[in-house]
Amino acid sequence: MSEPVTVKRQVTIAQPADKLYAFWRSFENLPRFMHYLEAVRTLDERRSHWMAKAPLGQSVEWDAEITADTPNELIAWRALPKAQVNNWGSVRFYAAPGDRGTVVQVELSYEPPAGKVGDLVAKLFGAAPDQQVREDLRRFKALMEAGEIPTIENQPHGERTLLDKVAGALKPSK
């Protein structure tokens, strides 16, 4: 077992804390902006089942439980023992200065396992888990402020040459 990887990121969202807390507290919503998640299912008041996207039709799944829950301020969770990937996280909501909404601070940690599952997890989070979390929070902000996440997927374009396609495929993913 290697050292846990921890990512901590903040974003300011021009919305009140109660709205942001409520959206996040319904864990089913998380895959709408956390792209590595396939689905989260609530099992009971404290426990939930998480499914992460994995390449080649494989999946990484675990059960998690809430370890702290202060309405409009804090939610913390961690994977239950025997999870394929031990991981935990928290989100805090603070009032932003100058009445500019809410600062959302997220902290996510996981212990990269060895072997096949470890490879999957590495693929899941990519080379830059930090950037992933940053993009997750950017999407969360857009969803909360504008009601949708900006996209250009499937929009029309003219002919792209083979070279362009190769260059596109090599581009680092977000």
Partner: peptide
């Protein structure tokens, strides 16, 4: 909806650029 649009700084919108990174 964002701070910038609300401040009439529309060309600095926080939410309209999918390639913000």
């Amino acid at each position: 909806n964002c701070f910038f649009c609300q401040s009439e700084l529309w060309s600095l919108c926080d939410n309209s650029n999918p390639n913000a990174h």
